Each structure stands twice: as C-alpha cells, then as structure tokens.
Simulated scan of single mutants.
Amino acid sequence: MLIPRLLAALVLIPLVVIVLFFLPLNIFAAVIILVCGLAAWEWAQFLNIRQTNSRLIFAIIWVGALCAMYYGLSPIAFSKACQFALILSLVWWCIALVLVIAYPGSAKSWQKSTVTKVLFSIATLWPFFVGMIVLRMNAYEYNPYVGATSLLYVLVLAWAADSGAYFAGRLFGKHKLAPKVSPGKTWEGFIGGLITALIIAVLASIYLFNTVPFTKVMIGSFVAILVSVLGDLTESMFKREAGIKDSGHLIPGHGGVLDRIDSLTAAVPVFAALVFLIL
C-alpha cells in the first residue's frame, strides 16, 4: 500500500505544480472542471447510479454547469456566484460535522433521498471548484504566481495532515477517531497529522507569508487543517452508506479522484472563504 502511494505522489506532485504555476488561468479552470467532472462520475455511486451511461450523464451535467459558470457569466455575476458558493461551503461543512458525529443515526435523514444527496454533491464540489479558482485568481494580473503559491500552500497543508495522520496512525494508533465512519482513523493519527501540518503553517508564516499577520495565517491554516479531516470523514461516510471501499481506481494506492481530493473539497473553499470573506 505504501509503495503505490509514494509512486503516485511522485507523479502527482510535479503534475500539480505544473498545472498551478505554468498553465494560463482559463486552461487551469478547464483542468479543474475536468477534475470535478471525474469526481461527479464517482459521486454518482453515492446516488446508487451504477449504469455507465447514467453516471456519464451526471458527470457531463456537472462539467456543463461549471463551464457555463466560469466561461459564461459576466464578471459581476461570477463574483456574486463565487461569494455565495464560499458561504455555502461554510454552512455545509458545519452541517457535515453534525452528520459525521451523529452517524449512523444521521443517515436516516438522507440515505433514501436522492435529492438530498444531489444537494450534498453541489455543496461539496461547487465550492471546491470556486475555491480553487478564486485562490488561483488572487492578484493574478499583478503577479500570476501569488495565487498559485497560496493555493499550493492549502494543498500542502491538507496533504501534510493526511500523510502525518497515516504514518502516526500506523506507528502509534490505538484510539479510534470515528469508528462508525472510518475505523482505520485514530486520534493518534489525527494529532500526528495536525502537528505535521501546523509545523508547515508556522514555517510558511515566517518565510512565505511574512507580510500577513501571524495570527491570521495560523487561524486560517488551523481551520483548513481541521476541516480537511472532516472532508475525509464525510466522504468515508458517503462511501459506507453506498457500500463501496474506494470511490474509484484511477490513482494507484489512493483509489479514485474523490479519494484524493476529499480533504481538499473542504479545506480549499473554507480557506478561501476565510481569506476573502472573513480574515
């Protein structure tokens, strides 16, 4: 399991850097739309949509809607849509926290409702797309690398929390974090991941974001780290209800696209909301 994870990381990390720093904004948006389309393809399983054609239609609808938003809306309408999506993200992840804590009892309120699970997909994937775009667009005309650096920072935080939790959990894990949702996760792993990511946050505050107040950097980073864990747990809850282990098999050692971006679907939009709407 570890070797495929490392090999996949060796391929994915340089690819992510290229997409972030070297693609024009419109092409970058197209790549993120494609990623969301693949995630929607996998999400269809949570809706009990198993037929290939039906899953493809669901993914195409997602791609079309995101293309219409990004390429079709006026700048003012696009800005308002982004603000709404980021606010929606803050609300949704508060709701998701309650659902995860109360699981499996909470599933009774949504497990048989296709409409509710479609709304869950909207509240998860749409703000993720918006968060990726608005962070990448930040100061783009002034310096195209400012937004790319900020976005990479959020990705690294989530990856550090995930990797730190993986290794700390394997070494020290004894007490289950959320046994009814994800039996493999432990409090020891959670603390190990939190410490790993916070070390990166402190270093970034000193050397990368030294013009931003330390308190603001740490608050935004800390919340993003915590909510990244919630994103992971929420997808695990949906997979458990759908009776699947991995959302897909596209990435060796990591499962599907949703398995790889589950923590990011929470961390990216929440961090963006904190940066642009609150802090």
Rank of each mutant, 00 (worst) to 15 (best):
N53W: 12
N53R: 10
S54I: 04
I60M: 12
I61Y: 09
I61D: 03
L66A: 07
L66F: 09
C67F: 10
C67D: 11
C67Y: 06
Y70W: 06
Y71A: 14
G72A: 11
L73N: 12
P75Y: 12
A77R: 12
F78Q: 13
S79N: 08
S79F: 05
A81V: 07
C82G: 10
C82W: 01
C82E: 11
Q83H: 12
I87V: 09
I87Q: 06
L88E: 10
W92E: 07
W92F: 15
C94T: 13
I95L: 13
I95F: 08
L97N: 00
Y103L: 14
Y103P: 11
G105W: 09
G105Q: 13
W110V: 13
K112N: 14
K112H: 11
L119D: 06
F120I: 03
F120W: 04
F120K: 02
F120M: 10
I122H: 07
I122L: 15
L125V: 03
W126T: 10
P127R: 15
P127V: 11
P127A: 14
F128H: 13
F129S: 07
V130D: 06
M132I: 02
V134M: 10
L135N: 03
R136N: 08
N138K: 08
Y142L: 15
N143M: 08
Y145C: 09
V146D: 08
G147L: 00
A148D: 05
S150N: 11
L151W: 00
V154T: 01
V154E: 00
L155P: 01
V156M: 14
L157K: 03
A158E: 08
A160K: 02
A160N: 01
A165C: 05
Y166V: 04
G169K: 03
R170Q: 10
L171H: 08
L171D: 06
